[in-house]
Each structure stands twice: as structure tokens, then as C-alpha cells.
Write a protein that binds this DNA or RNA. Structure first.
Length: 466
RNA sequence: CGGGAUGUAGGGUAACGGUCACCCACCAGUUUUGGGAACUGGUCCAAGCAGGUUCAACUCCUGUCAUCCCGACCA
């Protein structure tokens, strides 16, 4: 698996029936098993958003070109990867329409119409939708021309409140990754070079994949009043002064499914974190032709279905075939039940992570399944934390940095002067190591920049990325 | 976007300038079933697309599209 991680990845997304390719470059068919993971992710995140007062809306998928061009940095950032509609029906359009790569501009146009007074604030909107970015190199879930995501867009009366929202939503993402996906991550602030086009600050969550490569797992941006001024969104404040609201946006995409695959998978295939697994428990009957086995297994399925997502596989395939099949698909807990077990009023639970078998009483089966699901989550998280820990290195000198970059896949902590030139140079000489973020909890490794030797301003986490 | 490779059935492969073959899957049956079952019989289904060369193209040539690998790019 370490030998050819890229090939392993493409094999597993196909074999586990998560996706199929389509006739358009970089666009993937998300199959039922893959889409069910996304639905579980949506359900979890959506509940977290709503608990904090956010409301869902839907914006159009087309952006008039003139609208996208209102904010200068924003258009420069996105123009190279836009898909554009020029014909409607039979007629050339008088204005080209951009297929949304992100919806800041659309939200701004709408907010301009509905925000007039401080009483209209805050506006806490979110939408679940697709976006299109014409990518050059694509890979299922990790980088696709069209992908699904949620984008939250909020407007606030004060800078302080907006900044608080930005950080709060990043924390929501970090909690979600840890508590729902069993993925630990480094969180922090992007450097000037890596910021979102048009943002004042970009915060990011950076989980590390099994092979030591980073994946930007979610971002949260503080825009200040850059867009609100460009779009002329104003409100009358409590003191009867006209002001520009302060804005944020934040998003997580189907890329998170790629993170799950690459963080937890092993040589047998996927391992899905129990809280988003479409099938949490698969029941595999042994000697299923024998009297009473399928009936008992069916009753067990009905019982467990009250608490879990359960599948009973009573197909004619051999038990061994089924074992391999559900391991490939990453089902966290397997339940085996046959005549011997039924005679003992028991069944066998098997963990996908450790393959440990546990004989449990049928009277306790719900509690035991719950315990094993929790255990799988804890083990996945612990394993990923260990990987993150063991593949995070510290570099105090330039030579040390180059040595780690060349020989040890993973994150590198190193001091930085704050100059973009040093980021560019390090990326050049290492062939792709970039700053991931300035973590919230910086350490003091030395006084000087690892690249140029000038006084250091920050500790940066560096790494290669997908 | 540059370099390299691939494209034949639902999946995986083979051969061939002249009827495209096999394995798996699928269907029926029998024996099986606690780590990817065996035998027998059977059905369906294929050359990415567009041109060109040729009596004849899956095969040779050109273009194009898609996919994979490596690099560049990636708000």
C-alpha cells in the first residue's frame, strides 16, 4: 500500500463502488455507497450548523460575468478555472454566465437587497450545492471538476463578531473531523500566499493522510468589508451611522470522503468511521441453509436496525467471499451467526480495524455492537493521531529542512520570517513542500527563519498536499 | 498545461491486415457453505469517437476524447 498509494487509492474507490467515471474529464458518478457516506456527512454537519443558528438557502448556479468581476482579487483567483456558458437555447447570450466556482458574489448581491439595518444582522446562511472548477489534474473526491459541498456565508455588524464566527466555524470543522470522521488535524491560519482570493484571513484544517501528505480538509474565511464595499452592502447602525457589514464564508466538500479513504484505509480496502458508514454492521450468517439460521439472523437484523445501519447478507455467496467483500467496503463491524452460536445464544462480532473476534451473548448484542462501534472509532482516531505524531518533524536549519523534505514524508515544523519569497524558495528547492498553516499553538523552535536566517515571526507547519 | 502510457463484453485479459478468444460475473441444476467453493449445462454482451490508407482496419496512420502515472498549476 505504501509502494503505490496513488494506485491503491484509485483501485479502492472503484472496487468499493464509491464512484464511476463519466464522459467528462474530472466529473465522477457518485454511486449509492459513496453518496450514502456524503448524506451522513451532510446530516451531521447540517445539525451542527443549525444548532448555531444557521439557515439553509439555495442560490443560482450561474453568475453573470460582471458580478464575478466586482471584487478584484476574487476574480483574479478564480478566472483561470471557470466554466462559462455562452449560449442559451439557440442564442448567443448578451452576457456570459459563469458556472459558480463558489458563491460569495451571489450571496453579496442578495444580501445587498435584504440588509438595511443592524436589526437585519447577523445573516447566517448556508447552502448545500455543487460547484465547478476546471481543474487540470483530477482524482475522485480529492480534486474533481465538479464537486459537492456546503458553503456558509454570513454577515455581521462588527468585525469582532465576524472574526468570532470565522474561528467558531473552523472549530466546528475540527470537531466534526475528530468526533465524526475520527480524523485528527492541525488547525491554523493560512499565510498571505495561501489565502483565499479576496479574504483578509483564511483559517484551515489540515489532516494528514496515511502516507504523510496533507489534505486541506476545510476552510473558514474572514473577509472584513472588502466584498461588502465592492458590492455596496450597507446598513444603518444603532448610532444612525451607515456602515459596511463584516463578512465570513466557510466550506467543506466531498473531498472529506477522500480524507476518510486515505486516512483510515488499509491493504484490505476501506475502513469507514462508524458514524458515517452507510452500513455500520453487516450480518453474515454461517451455514445459512440450515434450519433456523436465516430466521434468527433476520430477527437479529430487525432488532439491531432500531439502533444501527444494518445489512444482512443472505446471498448465496460463500461466507469467505462475503468477509472479503465487506472488508473492501470498510464496514466497521461484522456479525457472524450460525448454528453453533444460536445453540449457545451467542454471536461473533469482528472489528474491521483489529480483526479481533468477540463472542457475545445475544441478550447483550445491542450494547456489544455499540461498544465495538465506539471502539472502532477510538482505534481509528488513535491510529491516525499516532501517524500524525510520528510523521511530524522539526527543522531548525535549512539543511535539516531539505533532508526531511526529501526523506521523511509528513509535516515539518519550522520557523519563518513572514516573507513570501522564502515560501516560494522552499517550495522550489523541495519540489512541492508548501506552508500548510501557522498553527494556533505556535512553538518557538529557534530565533531565525529556516530559509533566509532573518528573525523569525512565526512557526509554520509545512508539507506536501493533495 | 508538459512528459510517458492505456483504451477490445458488466469487470479483467489475449491474439490477429481477412469469422475477435478466454477468465470472472450472469442464468439453470447438483453438491457445498464458520476466510474469496466445485462440477455440469446455458444465455447475453465488445473494439472510446472522427477521419484517412487498403479489395479488406480491432490491427497501420492522423486527430480527438477519456483514464492512469510523473511534473507544473491549484483560489
Amino acid at each position: 500500500m505504501d509502494v503505490d498509494f496513488a494506485q491503491w487509492y484509485t483501485d479502492v474507490v472503484k472496487k468499493a463502488e464509491l464512484v464511476d467515471y463519466s464522459g467528462v474529464k474530472g466529473c465522477m458518478v457518485i454511486r449509492p455507497y459513496g453518496y450514502a457516506i456524503w448524506e451522513n456527512i451532510q446530516k451531521d454537519l447540517d445539525a451542527r450548523f443549525k444548532k448555531l443558528g444557521h439557515e439553509n438557502v439555495y442560490m443560482p448556479m450561474f453568475i453573470p460575468e460582471s458580478l464575478l468581476q466586482k471584487e478584484k482579487d476574487h476574480v483574479e483567483g478564480f478566472a483561470p478555472e471557470c466554466a462559462i456558458v455562452t449560449i442559451g437555447g439557440q442564442n448567443q447570450l448578451s452576457e456570459r454566465l459563469i458556472v459558480r466556482p463558489t458563491s460569495e458574489t451571489l450571496f453579496c448581491e442578495h444580501y445587498r437587497n435584504i440588509i438595511h439595518s443592524y436589526r437585519d444582522l447577523p445573516k447566517l446562511y448556508n447552502q448545500w450545492c455543487n460547484v465547478v472548477r476546471w481543474e487540470k489534474t483530477t482524482r475522485p473526491f480529492l480534486r474533481t471538476s465538479e464537486f459537492l459541498w456546503q458553503e456558509g456565508h454570513t454577515m455581521h455588524e462588527t468585525e469582532e463578531e465576524a472574526r468570532q464566527e470565522t474561528l467558531q466555524m473552523l472549530q466546528v470543522y475540527a470537531d466534526f473531523y475528530r468526533d465524526t470522521l475520527a480524523i485528527p488535524a492541525i488547525t491554523g491560519r493560512k499565510t498571505e500566499k495561501e489565502k483565499f482570493a479576496g479574504a483578509e484571513e483564511t483559517y484551515t484544517i489540515e489532516p494528514m493522510m496515511h502516507n504523510g501528505v496533507a489534505l486541506q480538509g476545510g476552510t473558514s474565511h474572514y473577509f472584513g468589508t472588502g466584498f461588502t464595499k465592492a458590492f455596496d452592502i450597507t446598513f444603518t447602525d444603532r448610532d444612525n451611522q451607515v456602515r459596511y457589514p463584516h463578512q465570513t464564508s466557510w466550506g467543506v466538500s466531498t473531498r472529506s470522503i477522500g480524507a476518510i479513504i486515505m486516512t483510515h484505509g488499509d491493504d484490505s480496502g476501506l475502513i469507514l468511521p462508524p458514524r458515517v458508514a452507510p452500513i455500520q454492521v453487516v450480518i453474515i450468517p454461517a451455514a445459512q441453509h440450515k434450519e433456523g439460521v436465516l430466521e434468527r439472523a433476520g430477527a437479529l437484523r430487525d432488532e439491531l436496525a432500531q439502533r444501527f445501519r444494518v445489512k444482512l447478507d443472505d446471498s448465496e455467496n460463500s461466507a469467505g467471499w462475503k468477509f472479503s467483500q465487506y472488508e473492501m467496503k470498510g464496514v466497521p463491524v461484522r456479525l457472524e451467526i450460525g448454528p453453533r452460536d444460536i445453540a449457545n445464544n451467542s454471536c461473533v462480532l469482528v472489528s474491521r480495524v483489529t480483526r479481533e473476534k468477540k463472542v457475545v451473548s445475544l441478550d447483550q448484542v445491542t450494547e456489544e455492537v455499540q461498544a465495538m462501534l465506539d471502539q472502532v472509532h477510538a482505534e481509528l482516531l488513535a491510529r491516525a493521531e499516532k501517524n500524525l505524531r510520528e510523521k511530524t518533524f522539526e527543522a531548525r536549519t535549512y539543511e535539516e529542512f531539505l533532508d526531511i523534505a526529501a526523506n521523511h514524508p509528513g509535516f515539518i515544523k519550522a520557523m519563518w520570517c513572514g516573507d513570501t519569497a522564502c515560501e516560494d524558495k522552499l517550495k522550489d528547492v523541495t519540489g512541492g513542500v508548501k506552508s500548510r498553516c501557522i498553527p494556533f499553538h505556535e512553538e518557538h523552535l529557534s530565533d531565525v527563519c529556516v530559509c533566509c536566517g532573518k528573525p523569525a515571526k512565526h512557526m509554520v507547519v509545512w508539507g506536501r498536499q493533495y
